[in-house]
Amino acid sequence: NRMHLVCPMNTSPYVDPQKSGHSIWEEFSMSFTPAVREVVEFAKRIPGFKDLSQHDQVSLLKAGTFEVLVVRFTSLFDVKERTVTFLSGRKYSVDALRSLGAGDLLNSMFDFTEKLRALNLGEEEISLFTAVVLVSADRSGLENVNSVEALQETLIRALRSLITKNHPNEIAIFTKLLLKLPDLRSLNNMHSEQLLAFKVQP
């Protein structure tokens, strides 16, 4: 009987109570599909990604798409104003979303956004970090872990080199950035739990 969709990948958190669970689900799917396609297009542009097996490309994307979207959409979370911008462009306050059922995940998203922003990374750095997020050799179901690991190491080396070049006096940024990876895993797990709860009673 859930009546609200607090994920900003919707046009609005409010759901028409007259609509069937199926049509709500269809609309939600239509809303986030373009963002998922963009992640796939991004993955295709990572040098070496297309050389991985088809199975592993799908496995990495299945496991990592949410984490990539979290990094890409930190701009939706206004840490200062405590608002979240939905796909329609309308902003909703944290308090409003909490009253609609948003819980710990929302707070954790704000924490993550705040910490990532504090690193003051440029577009190229964020992009390379996002590639590192996606190409993770410890995702489940990979058939050629060694290939993924080799690509992951190449990307991490490139990220370290870029950060060192751009922030010569702040090498700790690279370490802090890598420490964001387990934070993203944690967000991913929380999000998965929400999805499971939602799908059970659409």
């Binding site: 986030f32 796939v40 295709k44 088809q54 999805l195």
Partner: peptide, 27 residues
């Protein structure tokens, strides 16, 4: 519904989006 990615139909979207790339690789 033990797999959230399957719940969302994510795999289907990903496979379709990758398809051009995959066809290219199969050639």
């Amino acid at each position: 519904f033990s797999d959230p990615a399957s719940n969302l139909g994510l795999e289907d979207i990903i496979r379709k989006a990758l398809m051009g790339n995959m066809e290219e690789k199969q050639e």
